[in-house]
């Protein structure tokens, strides 16, 4: 799976499961740009973990500010599996 695939899937997740209508760009910040509140951040974490069967640790999450950070973390976790 390439990063491009993961980005496409994250976009799909955001649209379908989080009902996001704003454009999801790699540089979009999860909170400030996508406007995700604590409830939808929880939902995003669970959806990502379920979809890829990975676990995001607190230290992974702290480094994730943008969509591309998230995609990079998913890539790394998938490579480590």
């Amino acid at each position: 799976m390439t990063s491009g695939d993961v980005l496409t899937q994250v976009r799909e997740l955001a649209r379908e499961r989080l009902a996001l209508t704003v454009e999801v760009r790699p540089e979009s910040r999860l909170i400030e740009d996508l406007g995700l509140d604590s409830l939808r951040l929880q939902a995003l974490a669970i959806e990502v973990e379920n979809h890829y069967r990975i676990i995001l640790e607190p230290e992974d999450e702290e480094a994730i500010k943008t969509v591309s950070d998230l995609v990079a973390t998913i890539d790394r976790k998938l490579a480590d599996k």
Binding site: L30, I31, L36, S38, L41, Q42, L44, A45, L56, P58, E61, E62, I64
Partner: peptide, 8 residues
């Protein structure tokens, strides 16, 4: 517990 992706 800590929030997901939130401000720790």
């Amino acid at each position: 517990p800590p929030p997901r992706f939130g401000s720790l």
